[in-house]
Simulated scan of single mutants.
Amino acid sequence: MSKTLFERLGGRNGISKIVDDTVSEHMTNPNVNARFLPFLERPEHLAIIKQHTVDFFVTGSGGPNVYKGKDMVTAHTGMNISPAEYMHVMDDIVTALDKNAINEDTKKDVLAILWSLKGMIIAK
């Protein structure tokens, strides 16, 4: 029997590390950091966003159903995220996956999920 995506990402701890690394990448990426740097002044809000992101990926990758946050459209409405920004965010996620030694097949599975969410996030 093959492992779930949740297991291949290292379970909740692995996903948490990937989310932390992704946010660090966003903070230094000049193409998207204007959206993320303000959260440095609101660390409690950033912690909530990270927690929701971890819970979303835990649930979406076959782990326990823990996500209780907003749906993607509601969460991103009013942000007016451009297609280019979305691609930069995806690049940052790939960098975080690489930092965490996630194999190519698992990266492809994560990217497929992210690609499927694109229409719910861009220009909302």
Rank of each mutant, 00 (worst) to 15 (best):
G62M: 08
S61C: 07
G62S: 06
G78Y: 09
S82K: 15
P64H: 04
D71W: 00
Y67T: 01
T74H: 03
G62T: 05
V58R: 10
H88M: 09
S82C: 11
K70E: 06
F57V: 00
V58C: 09
Y67W: 01
G69P: 10
T74W: 06
P64S: 13
N80Y: 10
T77W: 09
V66H: 13
V66S: 10
M87I: 14
P83T: 10
M72G: 03
M87R: 15
T74Y: 02
P83V: 08
K68G: 15
H88G: 03
F57D: 02
G78W: 13
P83E: 04
A84C: 08
G69M: 07
P83A: 02
F57I: 00
G62V: 02
S82E: 11
T77K: 15
K70R: 14
G78L: 14
D71A: 00
D71E: 02
K70F: 05
I81P: 08
Y67K: 04
I81S: 07
D71K: 00
V66D: 09
N80W: 11
T77S: 14
M79E: 03
P83L: 03
M79Y: 13
P64C: 10
N80V: 09
M79P: 03
Y67N: 03
M87P: 05
S82Y: 09
T74K: 08
